[in-house]
Nucleic acid binder design. Sequence first.
DNA 1: ATTGACCTTGACCTTAGGTCAGGGTGCACG
DNA 2: CGTGCACCCTGACCTAAGGTCAAGGTCAAT
Lengths: 258, 258
Amino acid sequence: MANGLTIGQAAAFVGVTIKTVRHYHRLGLVAEPERDGSGYRRYGSADLLRLIQARTLAGAGVPLAEVGDLLDADPERFAAALDDVHRRLTEQIEDLTARRDTLHRLDHGDRALLPDRACAILERLTDLGFCPDYVAVQREGLVLARALIPEIFESFLNHLEHSLADPEFIELTKRSWDARSWDPDDPRIVELASAVAANLLANRALQTMPTGFRNQSDAAARYGVVNHHREDQGPSIARLNALVEENLRAAGVHIPHQ
Amino acid sequence: MANGLTIGQAAAFVGVTIKTVRHYHRLGLVAEPERDGSGYRRYGSADLLRLIQARTLAGAGVPLAEVGDLLDADPERFAAALDDVHRRLTEQIEDLTARRDTLHRLDHGDRALLPDRACAILERLTDLGFCPDYVAVQREGLVLARALIPEIFESFLNHLEHSLADPEFIELTKRSWDARSWDPDDPRIVELASAVAANLLANRALQTMPTGFRNQSDAAARYGVVNHHREDQGPSIARLNALVEENLRAAGVHIPHQ
DNA sequence: ATTGACCTTGACCTTAGGTCAGGGTGCACG
DNA sequence: CGTGCACCCTGACCTAAGGTCAAGGTCAAT
């Protein structure tokens, strides 16, 4: 008398595969049902109930290792666990929703890496006639700055926004960019460096660096990485950088070494 | 000149673990960055951008094996893929929401297995004075019926609801339940069987079985399992069952064998 | 100079199943 | 009657997306 459902019927009923049912048996999460004469598992309604319960919990993200315990727990603990699961599901839903909404930022690379304000600055650079390569280097710098020195990233942006309103700064920056192709010993570099330093000192926006920041040598190292990042462009840029720093230090501005 | 972030800093920036970053390298999903003098990976902003993009797609559920391809794809294909991911996320969110809303049915077992209508019938049985054991067997039967013969489950419920309004049916059912403890050769069984058959014939609710259903031998077998399910209770029940079927067949009602 | 925090590779573990191999069962059809 | 087909059995291995452990190199600070 073949009483009860076969594993395939039971699996279809609870909406899982046969393999999943056997998996649950092996983990001891659902007891094996009786076998019929030919060794087939036969599922009665009690077995189906247990399967559905297990399936529902597992489907809600409860680790299988906990499902068995949970189903055997007293109603009080069980209810608490259900509440917990409900909470976790809600959390997960919110998480997914957020992910979905963030997805569109991938369309344009910058938006995934930088806040809107920084993107606006980069666009402004393009509008001001800076070449794409320069904008790319500048974007690199912003990304590094945000990653390495988040403490002062906001004031970094302030400084940039302020500077872009100054035609002299823009002119000097364009010249600095041209300096890439100069010989490192070109005398114009010395001249340019003092002009740049003077401009920076005139603005004094560098002072927005938070007090205390300068004392942490770790922070200084990170600042150094950002500050020397553009030196990748060539030896004359490195020299220009060094000279500007020298000028600033001579004027009493503290700049971490290395 | 240690230019760029170490793996730990990069991982922290994109919000994953170091292991995850290395995993992405091994899968070829994100190219390995330059190494510094001591063999440490050093991440520039281009690497960070790639990492963030990969992370965003992976976090949205895109299989890692596809992420690499996708990021290298032309913008058109990429946009299409993004749409696809967005759709999948929405689907997943709806799925989780549904799961969360179903979770409370686990509190009372029946509600996880049976629709509200069936649960109401079981409660009605209790109210009508049927003993808990009988209700349990009946619940088993309903679960099996729903799993095995969903085609006629609704009409099965119709039939039951209708029958429960008939005092004679209830009386006969109670007597049938008592028959568990009778001897299989008890003459009262013959008498009870013809009374039950007469009651069923009078109602003729059995006729709600959909045409065409009777012709499928598979369906017949499944129907048989459900119909003979209660015979677990004892040999006298089996005999009663057989006699009722015999009576019904004699009256011209088609009932599948086995 | 040694501690502690970080980095390197490689080998194995985990979760929730899926796949494959090798064989038995039950039923219908020619 | 045997042949095909759909279903069932076990057991061994595979998968994704990492995590853990081991054994060792680096770096900065105390």
